[in-house]
């Protein structure tokens, strides 16, 4: 028997499902506490977050918490793994695109033209001293950990809850899912471009399953819709052939790295995906779906 609880946080839907209803309350407490800690460490929209302080003091090494060290470390691993397609130094480009506040506030205001694209400093320029917990970014650069922080949180929460309470757990934060523990039957998951849209049903036994898209976190501009997935090669919102990508990998961070890279750089990321062998489902601009690397072909419409 499973039990589930859903709430909203970080401008997205959060859902926690466990196969032992007795631990649901405590498990939700664990997840909310972790998300609160991550928010205080890495939110781009809180002026009092550690990340905001680091961005404000660009050019200097700033002492940070071990949690932020871990989050930045994961973002740099993702950048390396994706060949720079998922780059945490796209902060100024995201702001230039118009995503400079909580997404609801951006959507409510009068449409504004995006600013000229900015030069991406590059993830190699980030200075992270893991032993001394010091973090520094170049001048005129800002970190945006939005691509990896949610997935990291899903991974971390699922592992901690599963081990602490001895149950199978499914953590869902926005499009990032992570299953941990050993469920009696694999979880049944709807994979869709937008919550509530028609999607496909698949089973998830373990690991991470993430969906990245440029059709959800978007806002009106004078020339159309703007979105938040930046192509680091141009500093502009991505204009690749795929609007949505769903990927399975052993962890949510790894899955998210590939799904984000596919949206950010399109075909350039397909080669790396095929080398990794992670199952993926891509939706092109015209709605055509492509399934790669063993994505279950019998997945049916939900």
């Amino acid at each position: 028997m499973t039990a589930s609880r859903t709430w909203n946080a970080w401008s997205c839907t959060v859902r926690l499902t466990v196969d032992d209803p007795a631990v649901l309350g405590a498990a939700c407490g664990e997840l909310k506490a972790l998300m609160d800690r991550v928010d205080k460490a890495a939110s781009r929209f809180r002026p009092d977050s550690e990340l905001s302080i680091v961005n404000t003091r660009a050019g200097a090494l700033v002492p940070v918490s071990r949690l932020l060290v871990d989050l930045v470390d994961v973002s740099l691993v993702a950048a390396q793994m994706s060949g720079g397609a998922v780059d945490p130094t796209v902060g100024p480009a995201v702001i230039a695109a118009g995503y400079d506040a909580d997404i609801e506030a951006v959507r409510r205001r009068f449409p504004q033209a995006p600013e000229d694209p900015t030069q991406i400093a590059g993830w190699q320029e980030v200075r992270l001293n893991r032993k001394l917990a010091l973090l520094g970014v170049p001048k005129d650069c800002a970190l945006d950990l939005g691509a990896t922080a949610k997935a990291w949180t899903a991974d971390r929460a699922a592992n901690v809850i599963s081990k602490r309470y001895g149950c199978a757990v499914l953590v869902e934060i926005g499009g990032d899912l992570r299953a941990a523990g050993t469920p009696k039957k694999p979880w049944v998951i709807t994979v869709a471009e937008r919550a509530g849209d028609q999607g496909v049903l698949v089973t998830l036994a373990h690991g991470g399953l993430t969906t990245s898209t440029r059709t959800v976190r978007r806002w009106q501009t004078p020339t159309g819709y703007g979105h938040h997935v930046i192509d680091p090669r141009t500093g502009r919102p991505a204009e690749g052939p795929y609007r949505t990508a769903s990927v399975w990998a052993p962890t949510a961070v790894r899955a998210n790295t590939f799904s984000t890279a596919l949206i950010a750089t399109g075909e350039a990321a397909v080669g790396r995906l095929k080398l990794s062998g992670h199952p993926a489902r891509l939706i092109a601009d015209d709605g055509e779906a492509t399934e790669l690397c063993g994505w279950p072909t019998a997945s049916r419409a939900a």
Binding site: R15, T17, E172, T297
Partner: peptide, 14 residues
């Protein structure tokens, strides 16, 4: 692959 008739327990939405 999910069996036909199975109920979704979660969603990976964009």
């Amino acid at each position: 692959s999910a069996d036909s008739g199975s109920t979704s327990q979660g969603g990976s939405n964009g």
